[in-house]
């Protein structure tokens, strides 16, 4: 595919943080592509680097102690890594919208919802105050907030969690961004509200042609929302591909493990399979595969050599994909179609 088919393309990104006694390699060589008008889900446990990855693209990680040591990220044809903070600021909010797990902390508690959204419209789109107000009402209606004319003049604390997340979405799409980054948007919400918000995001995607990066730890949300999936573990993308590849042809033991650990509505699934242990601390990542210590199929090579990425559109970083590896529960990718 050509470059212009991608809304956002990230290559070989690496982010480090200085801490007491050493360096945490939070993101180690992450690449992914976000197709235009599609949803890319980045899945992983806390501490796997999924939030740091997108925050570093947006210039939202504190530097120091953080720093981007390598990589590039192109929004359309524009590079995001290494540009001046002011330029990044202009892109953030205007061309990339963001919503967070906790909308309360992203909104100013002393300003009405309407004013906060209107301010963005005035700054980024140069609207007049009255035009902005009309636009805010339209945005609130779009995000299915009832009585937008009344809600407009309310403060964040007067909104419930679900309503606040809707307001946050209204704010993030106010400038008609190309890309929407949703960082665990429904983790703090109840399942019934989660269902409402996810549906809203799907509707906005089809009406506005939004490209969405959805960060989550919940494979259920991924299954509902994603077109493409990148599974992250220990600061790396361990498997990536189309959503059906990931769910029905899992090529990495970690993805298999995640799926087995998910509860299901399927009455036949009577037992949860767990992945034992905890992810490695990226303060001192293991020399080989980060998952080797928790992997039932671990081989000698996994312990001391990091696996390469096998596959092309469906990729996996796992030695089990090597032609020399024995048969295993993971789906074998076409080994002659290796990534370069």
């Amino acid at each position: 595919m050509m470059t212009h088919d991608y809304a956002l393309q990230v290559d070989n990104l690496a982010v480090e943080f200085d801490t007491y006694g050493g360096v945490v390699q939070a993101v180690r060589d992450v690449s992914f592509k976000l197709r235009k008008g599609k949803t890319l889900a980045i899945v992983g446990e806390s501490g796997c680097g999924k939030s740091v990855t997108v925050q570093s693209l947006m210039g939202l990680i504190p530097m120091p102690p953080g720093r981007i040591t390598r990589g590039s990220a192109r929004l359309g044809n524009d590079e995001l890594i290494g540009i001046a903070p002011a330029a990044l600021n202009a892109i953030r909010g205007k061309r990339i919208g963001m919503i967070f797990q906790d909308p309360m902390s992203a909104l100013n508690p002393t300003m009405t919802i309407g004013r906060q959204i209107a301010e963005t419209l005035v700054v980024h789109r140069g609207l007049s105050a009255s035009a902005a107000r009309a636009e805010v009402i339209e945005l609130l209606r779009l995000t299915q907030i009832s009585q937008p004319e009344k809600r407009l003049d309310q403060y964040p604390f007067e909104f419930s969690g679900g309503m606040l997340q809707r307001a946050m979405i209204a704010l993030s799409i106010a400038c008609k961004p190309e890309v929407l980054i949703a960082d665990e948007p429904t983790t703090a919400l109840d399942v019934t509200i989660q269902a409402q918000i996810l549906l809203l995001l799907q509707e906005l995607q089809s009406s506005h042609g939004l490209s969405i990066i959805l960060i989550t730890h919940d494979l259920g949300v991924v299954a509902r929302m994603a077109h493409d999936v990148a599974v992250m573990y220990a600061g790396q993308v361990v498997e990536s591909g189309l959503v059906d590849d990931i769910f029905y042809r899992s090529a990495h033991p970690y993805t298999l493990g995640l799926r087995a650990a998910m509860p299901s509505n399927d009455p036949r699934k009577r037992q949860l399979q767990i992945i034992p242990g905890s992810p490695p601390d990226l303060f001192a990542p293991p020399p080989g595969c980060g998952f080797a210590d928790r992997c039932a199929q671990a081989m000698r090579v996994c312990r001391d050599t990091p696996p390469p990425a096998y596959g092309h559109t469906h990729q996996a970083r796992c030695w089990l994909q090597d032609p020399l590896a024995p048969a295993s529960p993971v789906t074998s990718l076409m080994v002659n179609n290796k990534a370069d």
Partner: peptide, 16 residues
């Protein structure tokens, strides 16, 4: 190299 590895000793190690 592709023989099964010995089981991991301690997957909850804290290194810091």
């Amino acid at each position: 190299d592709f023989a099964p590895a010995p089981p991991a000793t301690h997957a909850e190690r804290i290194v810091r």
